[in-house]
Nucleic acid binder design. Structure first.
Lengths: 335, 335
DNA sequence: TTGAAAGCGCTAACAA
DNA sequence: TTGTTAGCGCTTTCAA
């Protein structure tokens, strides 16, 4: 039924080895022979079977991608970066959602090992010991994208979240704020807890501002929780005048929460976000935000993975991409 | 190096066939034997090689997903629906972006055939003849998700876009509007041209309102183009008082375009969208919108595909999901 | 430059 | 209930 390399060999009066050579671009084939084989391939509409090839060569030209949730713009942007570079290097991608659950991450890894992927890009809020252990025992290279491994043992691509948070909060302090809230996503996320929160604290400390734990809100990082956080903070005896939001949705929730109560941004309160998705321009006022280069993190992760898969020399297994702050309207110009 | 079914067989003193049986849950194995094998599998950390299995069984338990752009929330939501059901049926997904380019769609299909996927879910704005031809010659079942095949020959999952558009525009007419603009995405998209636009026209016609082509704007369906469309339409001698937007981004662009010019929604103009992504609630005013059940379209497509792959009986190869209008603030209550 | 042949790790008759 | 054996379609030595 299906055309195999044998059929082509027979029709072209050559051995299957020769057909294999022309299919794989091996130069050791006489041009005339090559042409003859190519003609038969076209006539028979022969299509190499990647599964058989994978079994024989032990390479599937497929990489696994484990992502918390592809329907989340944040990760979708990362995934696109990964996919583009994968395509460029002729890899296909097996994409699976983990929903941030460690048990699923573990099971997904196991599943991908079984599928004989050539490498894996993993995104996770928290690299647990079990996960770390499994990654270290992986039969194929694994790169962490936008994901922190506190032990620094696994290859990864990130920005300096700590420094970025520090700068964001400092920018708020520059505008003379003393009461600065941090409305964060889950603090069980390493990036949020160990970097953004720490950067926030350090910036306040360096400015001689006392930390007030009541100004730190942990949330699900959604729009609704942003609104709820604003309402909650507004009821404080001494409410904040500036907000450092963990992501764009939270920031927009904060702004709409304020607007619904007649509080004007940036006149009455100021907001800085941490993401800069395309949502940042789709609110009024537009969001000043730390620029998280998600696409690039994905792309660079995949590029790094190709180096591991090709056993190329790796300069740095932990790459830190640059970040910056995009000034828009939710923050007044520096005074 | 790697543990194979042979190693397990040897260690357990059984034949590889028996190991294969226990791995595949074949009931024809004596419990004692099964246990013995299972123990060895655990001790050796044996992991079945899916590639070898795929070659021998001609089933890879992976399905291909061709999507225009995973970083677009619209498609990401669809993809999530597909992935969830795929996981439920123990399939993995190979995800590729086509960027709506026919040449890439064709090439991606070819690539997936080569990878021996068991089935494919395809999303595309426009099913060209070449694409249709390739789908019909596919060695594996293909289901279209949120994608129209005008010939109705290919299995697909959609809503009734024509009817939905008709209802949306009728809703605008109900609020006494006579000058109704349609700000659409690309009209080379079958859904936009043959259904939404047609529904728009029919609604106007049924209400005795003359079609004014200057009120129909074709765009890239982005936020910026929504704003640009508003500005353009506002300059007309007789500008529209109501807008039917092709998607949420366009609707938000329209609203912000209006607000930037001091035009108030819904007092001065009214807007209805067609998507109802989570963005719909993240604007002020919130968007009244036709609800496009993207997740469900993805999920149902994948479910339908499993039926084809299992050669189950198919009731309807063309499924049409229900839709409705979610009333929010960008439209006044019916008069 | 080409061919022969031995796997790759597994499934699936078929036989026992 | 278990084992034997022939592939699945290809890559990759090794020889010629």
């Amino acid at each position: 039924m299906t055309i195999t390399i044998y059929d082509v060999a027979r029709e072209a009066n050559v051995s299957m080895a020769t057909v294999s050579r022309v299919v794989n671009g091996n130069p050791n084939v006489k041009p005339a022979t090559r042409k003859k084989v190519l003609d038969v391939i076209e006539r028979l509409e022969y299509r190499p079977n990647a599964v058989a090839r994978g079994l024989a060569s032990k390479k599937t030209t497929t990489v696994g991608v484990i992502i918390p949730d592809i329907s989340n713009v944040f990760y979708a942007e990362l995934a696109r970066g990964i996919e583009d570079i994968a395509t460029m290097y002729r890899y296909n991608i097996i994409l699976s959602n983990s929903d941030q659950r460690e048990d699923k991450e573990l099971q997904l890894l196991e599943n991908m090992f079984g599928k004989q992927v050539d490498g894996i890009v993993l995104m996770s809020d928290r690299v647990t010991n079990d996960l770390l252990h499994m990654i270290e025992r992986s039969p194929v290279p694994i790169v962490l994208a936008g994901t922190i491994d506190a032990t620094n043992r696994i290859a990864s691509v990130n920005i300096d979240y700590y420094q970025a948070a520090y700068e964001a909060v400092t920018r708020l302090i520059q505008n003379k704020h003393q009461r600065i809230a941090f409305v964060s996503g889950s603090l069980s996320s390493t990036i949020n807890r160990a970097f953004k929160y720490t950067g926030y604290e350090k910036a306040l400390e360096d400015a001689g501002i006392a930390i007030d734990e009541s100004l730190v809100i942990e949330s699900d990082a959604t729009y609704d929780e942003g609104m709820a956080a604003f309402n909650h903070l507004q009821k404080l005896a001494n409410p904040p005048t500036a907000f450092f939001a963990g992501n764009d949705e939270l920031a927009i929730g904060l702004i709409h929460g304020a607007q619904d109560r007649g509080v004007v941004v940036p006149e009455d309160i100021e907001v800085i976000s941490f993401e800069n998705s395309k949502l940042a321009r789709m609110v009024r006022p537009t969001l000043t935000s730390v620029v998280l280069p998600l696409y690039d993190i994905g792309a660079v992760s995949m590029r790094l993975l190709t180096k591991y898969m090709n056993k190329e020399h790796i300069d740095e297994k932990t790459v830190v991409l640059p970040h910056r702050i995009e000034e828009r309207q939710s923050l007044k110009k520096p005074i």
